[in-house]
Amino acid sequence: MTSKKTELMVGIFVALALAATLMLALQVANKGMSGSGEVYQVSAKFDNIGGLKARSSIKVGGVVVGRVTRIYLDNQELIPVVDMEISADYARTFPETSSVSILTAGLLGEQYVGLTPGFVFPGEDPIYLGDKEGETQFIVDTKSAIVLEDLIGQFLFGKDSD
């Protein structure tokens, strides 16, 4: 009893829904790159994370290479720890001497983690981030978020000592 026209229209409807899903997946959520690929874990300790949140991006010179997965407070040291995932496309890319800092996009924009690749001594066999499989690696060199109050304090202090 289902006529051909009905079937055709339902087919178009389903195709449209699939197209919408595909568009949301690729164009909007950009699932193609970040969601499906393999990742490796690194962590870093900061004195202050400012407004950094889970799912904030990790950028190297503006290129997104990963995401923040979790932020928590270290129970012993009482400083924030940031867990990060970096795309496996960049495995064995960043030496362990790389540094991370919390930066702000524009004046009022989102905060993100900026990763500055470290140097490799020529002739030495370098150790890269993500080399130790199965355990998280800590990035030692970190720069905290800039907090406006601290900045003003530094400015005033600098004036005083002058």
Binding site: F13, V14, L16, A17, A19, A20, T21, M23, L24, V28
Partner: peptide, 15 residues
């Protein structure tokens, strides 16, 4: 079955 499909289409068209 239809409504989630409609919602996806709605969002996509809205964007």
């Amino acid at each position: 079955i239809s409504m989630p499909m409609l919602a996806l289409i709605f969002s996509a068209v809205g964007i």
